[in-house]
Simulated assay, not measured.
Amino acid sequence: MGKLICGFLPNDLKTIFFSLSVLFRLSLGTELSVVTCGSVIKLLNLKHNVRLHSHDVRYGSGSGQQSVTGVTAVEDSNSYWSVRGTSDTFCQRGTPVKCGQTIRLTHVNTGRNLHSHYFSSPLSSNQEVSAFGEEGEGDHLDEWTVQCGGTVWKREEAVRFRHKATEALLSVTGEQYGRPIHGQREVHAMSGPSQHSLWKAMEGIFMKPSENLAANRHYSHPHTEF
């Protein structure tokens, strides 16, 4: 397993990632049924059975930023993403992520955020998705809105991620790269919802809500934007 680079994170999250490196094959908090702020997770595209992935390899066209792909390998540390709040909205650790909430997904090993913009993706000419920023900080193009069917993001359900600035959906349609990342799938963003844009939280560390949060939460108003 590759070394986790976590210098950009607060001390409490560094502790989480240290645990992740030791317990690679385990999923902590498996009884927790929702995705919470501060969790470190892998995301599976349900249509193509690939996990959202990044690495320090840049696109040779478009933005030239760090590439984001889909991989079939389950045990790859470059597929871990941290669920975080935005620069404007704090996301308290252990708080369930609500349907309709805007978040950032930060790539654990490189500290860059899942990002999109109006550059064309290299294979399909859809909207490019990249990883951008330094030490967890980028810009407003790193923000994604979670679309799900109820009130909070449940681990077992399929969700979509809509890019806040462009309104495109994080997607995979099956195009495969050649060398040097042979077999990895192109990840991009598309304007309309489809089976290609459905994702599910998989392996990782899921932060539990505190007792106070669990006692005071009220999830009585379902969202319908999914």
Rank of each mutant, 00 (worst) to 15 (best):
R112D: 00
N113F: 06
H115N: 10
H115C: 11
S116A: 12
H117W: 07
F119H: 07
F119C: 13
S120N: 00
S120W: 00
S120Y: 07
S120K: 04
S121G: 06
S121Q: 01
S121Y: 06
S121D: 10
S121T: 05
L123Q: 01
L123K: 00
S124I: 04
S124H: 02
S125F: 12
Q127N: 10
S130D: 03
S130N: 01
A131F: 13
A131I: 08
F132E: 08
F132L: 08
G133C: 09
E134Y: 11
E135P: 00
E135G: 10
G136A: 13
E137I: 12
E137H: 11
E137N: 09
G138D: 14
D139E: 01
H140L: 15
H140C: 14
H140G: 13
L141A: 14
L141V: 01
D142M: 05
D142S: 14
W144I: 12
W144P: 08
T145V: 10
Q147R: 15
C148Y: 02
C148H: 13
G149A: 05
G149Q: 12
G149L: 10
G150K: 13
G150A: 07
G150L: 09
T151R: 04
V152T: 15
V152M: 13
W153M: 12
E156A: 08
E157R: 11
A158Q: 09
V159T: 03
F161K: 11
F161A: 07
F161Q: 10
R162M: 08
R162K: 06
H163V: 05
A165L: 12
A165E: 13
A165K: 12
A165C: 12
A168I: 09
L170H: 15
L170T: 14
S171K: 09
V172F: 05
V172L: 12
T173I: 08
G174I: 03
G174T: 00
G174Y: 02
E175Y: 09
E175W: 02
Q176F: 02
Y177C: 05
Y177H: 15
G178L: 06
I181W: 04
H182A: 04
Q184C: 01
R185G: 00
E186W: 06
H188I: 00
H188T: 05
H188R: 03
M190H: 02
M190T: 04
M190E: 10
S191D: 14
S191Q: 14
S191I: 04
S194C: 04
S194G: 09
Q195F: 13
W199F: 08
W199Q: 00
W199A: 06
K200V: 02
K200T: 03
A201Q: 15
G204Y: 03
G204I: 07
I205Y: 04
I205G: 07
F206H: 03
K208F: 14
S210R: 03
